[in-house]
Amino acid sequence: MISIKNLHANIEGKEILKGINLEIKAGEVHAIMGPNGSGKSTLASVLAGRDGYEIMKGSIVFENKNLLDLEAEERAREGIFLAFQYPVEIPGVSTTNFLKTAINQIRQHRGKKSLDAVAFLKLMKSKMKLVEIDQALLSRSLNEGFSGGEKKRNEIFQMAMLEPKLAILDETDSGLDIDALRIVSHGVNSLKSKDNAIILITHYQRLLDYILPDFVHVLFDGKIVKTGDKSLAMELEKKGYDWIKAEHGSLETI
């Protein structure tokens, strides 16, 4: 589904990603872990097409298309979804109105007719159950005054509505209590299928108790330095990142 090769990216002249290689097939769940500042969120932003990142080298091919040629909104319409670590507030715009605009622009792009109000509401009702979100929240201004948990649930609700091929969850578990974590994970698990793929960016093994990854990658200093299965996450939980730093971080100590 997506193939990232030797990806190098800078922010304001500083190299953050230093040669990322990653292959993800449909039906897979990949977890990306790593210490603060290792480049996890940068990778998410680069995949989603955020401005302000310079791609120095490498390629990203998504469903046979060169992703780097596409604008952020075109990537979204092709089926890339980013659940934000810090969802943005848009005063005066309800989630409902926001999603309706988004869905219809995506449908237009795919040559489909706009959803009418009835069909849209029906779709919304069916997806609301997945993340146990209620109508009142969806009528409020997007993310304005939402609790941390509400914001994250709302992100997963949007994912459910937009049905992406590749979903990138950027620290969706941070700031969630156990109940919210369970609800969010349940939502993600029910959206998982053999046709889509998920990238989980997280600090904690805890999330992987709920969403079972096929692969776990450790990102350190802009590179994937280790890949394994869930047991790698368990090992990190026990031993921390120091041993990884010891193996790969010699440059940083200078």
Partner: peptide, 17 residues
Amino acid sequence: GEDQIFYCKQRGLDEES
């Protein structure tokens, strides 16, 4: 903010919308 615009674009809205 650029953040708000990026958030919208990530959901498939073009710049003007």
